[in-house]
Design a protein around this nucleic acid. Structure first.
Lengths: 335, 335
DNA sequence: ATTGTTTCTGAAAGCGGTTACAAAACCGCT
DNA sequence: AGCGGTTTTGTAACCGCTTTCAGAAACAAT
């Protein structure tokens, strides 16, 4: 059942049918009705491929992410999906892994598919391969990025102010009286660096000593949290608080600290990041920086909406994190 | 850059280029090499739409899931994506939500896209709308389902034996000496029912009393776990152990039990489900049934592989859960 | 050299839409 | 009736690829 069949049945030409389908004005009311009726009686669904090949919009939004299993990414993917499909767009959710060649592969596929919009989620997509690919082949469609840094005429950015998030954590610890704060640096590309910079700036501001071993670098994770504590202990780091790690990492830290006979927060305070479910579960419940991922998702959807409907959208949107106070941070012991 | 451009550059016809691209035999080694070289020098990517319109396979696997934010679903989506794209397939990851009309919408889109294979993840897709849609429009392509029950000539099923999982939990608790075991029933459609049935069967086998309030029904979640404990307490249920809830729910139970001054596992034993990261984090660490989601994902990929390459694949694959013993279950107090 | 076989190759016909363009129909006027 | 102008309609080219089919080339056998 194709457009010609419908045309024949309705006694019109294929062009007229196409016009009716696409709501193009300039069809007599009489024929329009006749075609509509034929269309619905035969449950006609236009062939996407033909339509796209002929040059019409693909009505597709592509989401690229490094790891859909990561809760932050899947939340954003979920929200964007909701928004896009409510606007009548199909969503192509691509999980690239961290492998640049796979990222490139997907970008190539998307070029050939002529997606209407590209959404990049996560800083792990920052690498020269992706950069070049975007620069060379995505001139014509909007590219919305969360935590990426590519630039271009069609680039739109949405970012959490992670530096401010860390600053808030340090401010809070400082206000409680902490003067010796160790830091966990994850491997989330430049995001991690920005967090570290914020920590270092605050340390300088408050005169917090930063020694050779005050910063532990590793991929995030429960076990990494335990490793971090081990590292600080083994290297004789003097600290009354730790921050920088995300909640799951912080939970590992707490676990290890308790195993070492230290009480949290009496002996050591811990502040996590992301305010995920882990923060609630941890004992004591974690004080944590909420990146406000839902606001970020919302901002992405808003940008998406503007980019797809109007010709203009906000180039950069920043979302301010907030500190959620629970039980894992308290004034340090005297002395 | 289309196939004609390539043909001209390589000094052959478009047909030959097409043959090379599709690995069709009957091209001289000489020309094949020349075309290949041109292809890669120009970073040529065939236009999907034209290719599909011309009748070739769409090279697309569609994954339908109710909520990509759910870790179990995203793990499976991730694995299937890996497998499919390593076989050269694009993956269309569709998040339907629980809304049948959206599920239907996506299925319609997929029909018009003529996906090569459909993967349904999660029992929440079990409803008459989806059933009818599949029955009517997906005769020609394999439909692989995890925890769905639709039947048909092209239906393939992969399931965890959740009943066995629950049975193992109850067996274990019984072997520890428990004779009063309460149960948490989630709302995961027939899966939940199957778990409950297994519990009831075991209860009967062991003579465990099942009263009017021994089973608490609710959607899974941390708060639901707390609610469950409240419910059992308020209704004067006599229990020394609880099982049936997933890890996050079980963690909520533990939290609430401890808040009520009960020690876990000394006063009450708790056994979770899924053996997720939550089980590790909980204090005490949860004894939990591992549904072996990775094996399930593997089985789906295997089925996918068979269905796409050979004409035959295993109709049903079952994965046996295993019990992971940690610290949240112990013999009940004497008396 | 001629013929028959087999292997390669390219021209061209779709696939099912969209859309530029031209023709037709309609309109209100002289 | 004849005319310009507007609205509606249909014809046909095109999008980029696959695939059929016929012919060319290569080779073997007569």
């Amino acid at each position: 059942m194709n457009i010609y069949d419908i045309a024949k049945l309705a006694g019109v030409s294929s062009a007229t049918v196409s016009r009716v389908i696409n709501n193009v004005p300039g069809v007599s009311e009489d024929k329009r009705r006749r075609v509509m009726e034929t269309l619905s009686r035969h449950n006609y669904v236009p062939n996407m491929f033909a339509r796209n090949l002929a040059g019409a919009s693909t009505k597709t939004v592509a989401i690229l992410t490094v790891d859909i299993r990561h809760i932050n990414y899947s939340i954003i993917a979920y929200e964007v999906e909701q928004q896009a499909s409510s606007m009548g767009y199909n969503v192509l959710l691509c999980n690239t892994t961290r492998d640049p060649s796979r990222q490139q592969f997907y970008l190539r596929v998307l070029v050939s598919k002529k997606a209407d919009c590209l959404v990049l989620i996560g800083s792990s997509l920052c690498n020269p391969v992706v950069d070049k690919e975007i620069r060379d082949n995505f001139h014509d469609i909007p590219v919305i990025m969360m935590n990426s840094q590519f630039d271009g005429p069609n680039a739109y950015h949405v970012q959490g102010r992670v530096g401010d998030g860390v600053a808030k954590a340090v401010d809070y610890l400082h206000s409680l009286g902490h003067r010796k704060i160790a830091f966990f640096k994850d491997d989330d590309h430049w995001i991690a660096q920005r967090k570290l910079d914020a920590y270092l700036a605050k340390a300088k501001e408050y005169g917090i000593p930063v020694g050779k071993h005050s910063v532990y670098c590793s991929r995030s994770g429960y076990d990494s949290g335990m490793d971090a504590v081990n590292y600080f202990e083994e290297n004789g780091v003097d600290y009354t608080a730790i921050t920088g790690g995300d909640d799951i990492t912080a939970t590992g830290m707490v676990k290890r600290l308790k195993a070492l006979g230290k009480s949290v927060p009496r002996d050591v305070s811990v502040v996590g990041y992301f305010n995920s479910i882990y923060a609630k579960i941890c004992e004591p419940a974690l004080t944590s920086v909420d990146n406000n991922i839902n606001l970020i998702a919302q901002a992405i959807c808003n940008t998406l909406n503007c980019a797809l409907t109007k010709r203009t959208a906000p180039k950069k949107t920043y979302v301010e994190p907030s500190l959620i106070v629970r039980d894992s941070a308290a004034p340090p012991k005297k002395g």
